[in-house]
Design a protein around this nucleic acid. Structure first.
Lengths: 232, 232
DNA sequence: CAATCCGTGTAATCGATGCTTACATTCACA
DNA sequence: TGTGAATGTAAGCATCGATTACACGGATTG
């Protein structure tokens, strides 16, 4: 979308907000909630063609608004992408926490596995959205208090879960930091490889992908668990 | 570079090819090896600001050539990026194979570790170049015989090494495919997290980064090795 | 109720980019 | 030596991000 030929976009028929007693209400001068609509449009564009497919003008077009209008709400394209990325990150975190809420409470290592699985599943179901939250370039690194609060929350969650697992003697290594980074690298890497096209065989079906994701996660968990063989 | 103000590029002083008996040879009409120079310029641009920092015009500017000239050698920007990515992939493979050539021959698992380490080191020393080879979008997926021969070679190499390790009883799992994918995901993930800015603490120094890289690699190797504790 | 302020949208414009077409130059081969 | 193919230039198109001047109209005031 960003520099390719494209039909003139067919002009949406002026969204029917506020039926307006009698006049045809062709298009109210003020949009209503343009900011929200722009973010949604951009999210959709990301879903269709990745981050590069997002253009301010196309988002404006889909919102039925002039090309300059978005700049009233976002000082730059990056600012729009920032908002989009934060929204995606929010959804990501919400889904993972929801999945974890259903996991058994008294098996930390099992909970850790559950966390990783939810991570992988979301990333594979929403590849382009994962792409924008994983590439930190869309987050504002100047803001105080850590840009994406949601991301820090997730990391904390993983760390606490690992600490519990260690406290219950479920881990072989005491270097929790390394284990945490390795675990993150594993799921991150698998998710990104999937997005970046390193597994061309898995078309859209993704059943193989999900099975493999689970398998390598288990391989990792077994690798860090205490007494890996012998009994089981 | 792709849409920001920039000084007019200072105009290189007409590269002195072929001193030309006596005339000042201000600029030969034909460049000599524009294709090569364009790829180098683009590689440099990638090194300076990542893939998005590459513009055909800027590459042309640095080659001291008109904006349309590159299109004689590359039908599109993507084609240029393709060439750039293949060049980077070639260097990547060369360095890894060189490192592996110095590894002890009769310890497959050790060789596997060495491979992973070389991978991580190159990725961390050439982050932006790793970025373009990891994102497969710059490779031509239509070409027969697999686009990046070099990449397939590397994967084969890893698989053979793992098979040897298994044959010598060094591995705990017999599912070599899973082990290979997990290993790839681990190093890939770590490298990309580093590039994508998930480890903001490691400024440019990178000593911490390299140590951590080695640590998580060892953690993984221990996890897949047979008899992980007990003796060592 | 009316006047006005200011948030929000429009129109027009700028420079940069990818890419194409028409033309110019020069190399290489017959 | 002459000519055609290869390779460069010049000019131009459409799109993009971004800025500026202006227009609209809802909300707050007196």
């Amino acid at each position: 979308m960003r520099s390719s030929a494209k039909p003139p976009s067919a002009k949406l028929p002026a969204r029917p907000r506020r039926p307006a007693a009698r006049a045809p209400a062709p298009k109210p001068y003020h949009h209503g909630d343009l900011r929200r609509v722009l973010i949604d449009a951009a999210l959709q564009l990301v879903g269709e063609g990745g981050p590069d497919a997002v253009s301010v003008r196309e988002a404006a077009r889909r919102a039925g608004v002039s090309p300059g209008a978005p700049f009233r709400h976002f000082p730059s394209r990056d600012a729009l992408m920032n908002a989009v990325a934060e929204e995606a990150q929010r959804r990501f975190r919400a889904e993972i926490e929801a999945a974890l809420a259903e996991a058994p409470a008294n098996n930390p290592l099992g909970r850790f596995r559950c966390l990783g699985l939810a991570y992988l599943r979301w990333a594979m179901k929403n590849p382009t959205h994962f792409e924008i939250i994983s590439s930190r370039r869309f987050f504002d690194h100047d803001k105080t208090a850590g840009v994406s609060q949601d991301n820090a929350e997730l990391i904390d969650l993983a760390e606490r879960t690992l600490a519990e697992a260690f406290a219950q003697g479920q881990l072989r290594s005491a270097d929790l930091k390394q284990v945490q980074i390795a675990g993150r690298a594993l799921v991150y890497g698998f998710a990104r490889m999937n997005i970046d096209g390193h597994f061309p065989r898995w078309g859209v079906a993704g059943a193989d992908a999900e099975r493999t994701a689970e398998a390598i996660l288990d391989l990792f968990i077994e690798g860090i668990a205490k007494v890996p063989s012998k009994s089981a």
